[in-house]
């Protein structure tokens, strides 16, 4: 792998390779979180053209634990907010000597544009592009599910995962559907019809409008954040009604199987898509997702950066 742009262009071996690497890294990390010298002398640039403190600090922590030099390049106050083009930004990063660029961008396909053009030579890691994909989030979600419910290493065969909420605008959902299906899990998307894209029948998953009919059968339920602005865009009548049909509250939680996991990529709207009791319950692995995020991102950086550059040839 040279870049991590989307789950769509990933195969099972790539995915399992990253998850296995993360598993080994988590064993080391379970002791003391010490710094590893692995990426000493490498430069990782966090290019965040869209605000996301959580993902940025996760990638930053991952890079720093592997001893890479980290440069944060955020939208606010940077040349991006002054209208600099993606091309000029990329060429600047090339001149700085970035070995990898972690890019978060509001435009779908921005990471692929960065990788496809000859503007820079480093690895490109998609940290969320528009409403397209968020592959590192899907990998950390799969890692979390595998750790709790998987049969050691390997895939997620036989598991059933529900993803609930604004599928239409969710890059997390897109990446998760593809990755979970790739790893052999069954995926059911649950949302009001307005928040499902046209053409979803071609996705490797099933779709339901009825949360309650799905809940008793799943091994993990992944709640998606509902953006406040969706309410003004006519997707559903109001927050109360959304919450009534698609929110996960303690009443609904009762119908889950005992070992089922509750997940959320964050940041949560407590009281809207998830109630506080559920978010803080014993079966919620939401904070664990955050710590697994660092480990999985270390694995991604390791796989992309630790070896010789791919174009140099192998021994």
């Amino acid at each position: 792998m040279k870049h991590l742009l989307s789950i769509e262009d990933m195969n099972v071996q790539d995915a399992i390779g990253i998850l296995d690497t993360a598993t080994e890294l988590s064993r080391i990390n379970d002791g003391q979180m010490k710094k590893l010298p692995t990426l000493r002398g490498r430069t990782v640039v966090n290019l965040f053209a869209e605000d996301s403190t959580r993902t940025r600090i996760s990638f930053e922590a991952a890079a720093k634990r592997l001893s890479a030099d980290v440069i944060n390049f955020s939208a606010k106050g940077s040349s991006i907010s002054k209208g600099e083009s993606l091309k000029d930004t990329a060429m600047t990063l090339q001149a700085i000597g970035a070995d990898a660029v972690v890019i978060r961008h509001s435009a779908s396909g921005a990471a692929q544009r960065l990788a496809d053009n000859q503007w820079m030579s480093g690895a490109v890691i998609n940290a969320g592009d528009g409403t397209h994909e968020h592959p590192s989030q899907a990998l950390l979600d799969a890692f979390t599910i595998r750790k709790h419910l998987g049969k050691g290493s390997g895939d997620l065969q036989g598991l059933h995962v529900a993803i609930v909420g604004d599928i239409l605008h969710s890059r997390v959902a897109r990446s998760n559907v593809l990755l979970l299906a790739l790893l052999g899990a069954k995926v059911t998307l649950v949302a009001p019809p307005t928040l499902l894209p046209i053409g979803i029948d071609k996705w490797p998953c099933t779709v339901s409008y009825d949360f309650d009919s799905v809940l008793p059968y799943v091994d993990a339920v992944m709640m998606l954040r509902v953006q406040q602005e969706r309410m003004t865009e006519l997707f559903f009548p109001n927050a109360r009604e959304y919450s009534r049909y698609y929110g996960l509250n303690s009443e609904r939680m009762k119908s889950l199987k005992p070992a089922s996991l509750i997940m959320h990529p964050g940041p949560m709207n407590r009281g809207l898509e998830i109630s506080a009791e559920v978010a803080d319950s014993a079966r919620s692995v939401i904070t664990e997702q955050v710590s697994n995020g660092v480990t999985v991102r270390m694995a991604i950086l390791y796989v992309l950066l630790a070896g010789a550059p791919l174009d140099v040839g192998s021994i």
């Binding site: 769509e8 779908s108 592009d129 397209h132 894209p197 046209i198 053409g199 071609k202």
Partner: peptide, 18 residues
């Protein structure tokens, strides 16, 4: 809208033009 609304716009996360 960014492209034809359909299977591909759904996959690419680009807003559809039905």
């Amino acid at each position: 809208a960014q492209m034809n609304e359909g299977e591909i716009s759904a996959r690419l996360g680009l807003k559809g033009w039905p």
